[in-house]
């Protein structure tokens, strides 16, 4: 019984952030020229939801979305030159998203620019319980993990908040101009 309790306690942090950042990705921080790490756990999100004004149409929708979420985690690496991270590094994230509950709903690959964006959805019992975004560019790698009920179209509303990059609704493509407009 004690062992079961200890095991449960040990597993709690993993459950909190369901897509784990592997050590190979963490090590990219040493090569990156810039690393941004945004962590919003359930308590911070509840706080945010409580504080966002409901009468402002811009934030009312975000407030509604956020109040149901359990966690938002954003990790972004920027590099001075291409080739600082390997396809295997991204694969270590992608392999976690091949579980029975996960499904890739958007994948955009641009051979010319080397951009590769993917959006994954996690469903349990017919309900969406999580979402993950991998946006890989030659000199930038961004991983977004949203834990909780969220629809793909909600990503557009959340884009530009909480450090989540703005996404093009049509393709799931990262919208750089939108990000810089903030």
């Amino acid at each position: 019984m004690k062992l079961a309790m200890i095991g449960f306690v040990c597993l709690l942090p993993m459950m909190a952030q369901d897509v784990k950042i592997p050590a190979s990705i963490e090590k990219l921080a040493d090569k990156a020229s810039e690393v941004v790490d945004v962590t919003l756990d359930a308590s911070l999100l509840q706080l945010a939801a409580k504080f966002l004004p409901a009468n402002d149409p811009d934030t009312a929708q975000v407030k509604r979305l956020v109040s149901g979420l359990k966690g938002v985690y954003v990790r972004s690496f920027q590099f001075d030159k291409p080739g600082e991270y390997q396809a295997s590094d991204v694969e270590s994230i992608r392999s976690q998203l091949r579980g029975p509950n996960w499904a890739r709903i958007v994948g955009v690959r641009k051979l010319k620019s080397g951009e590769h964006s993917e959006v994954y959805l996690r469903t349990e019992g017919g309900s969406i319980t999580g979402l993950a975004v991998i946006a890989a560019e030659p000199k930038e790698l961004t991983i977004v993990n949203i834990n909780g009920p969220i629809r793909p179209e909600d990503l557009q509303e959340l884009g530009g908040h909480f450090g989540i990059p703005k996404l093009d609704g049509e393709s799931g493509r990262k919208n750089d101009s939108g990000k810089k407009d903030e």
Partner: peptide
């Protein structure tokens, strides 16, 4: 609670920002 961490080494400059939040 840890909220934001930014580490930057652009153009030889060094910047480390850590933000924690509490209610």
């Amino acid at each position: 609670s840890p909220f934001v961490t930014v580490r930057s080494r652009r153009s030889g400059q060094f910047e480390l920002v850590m933000v924690y939040m509490r209610r």
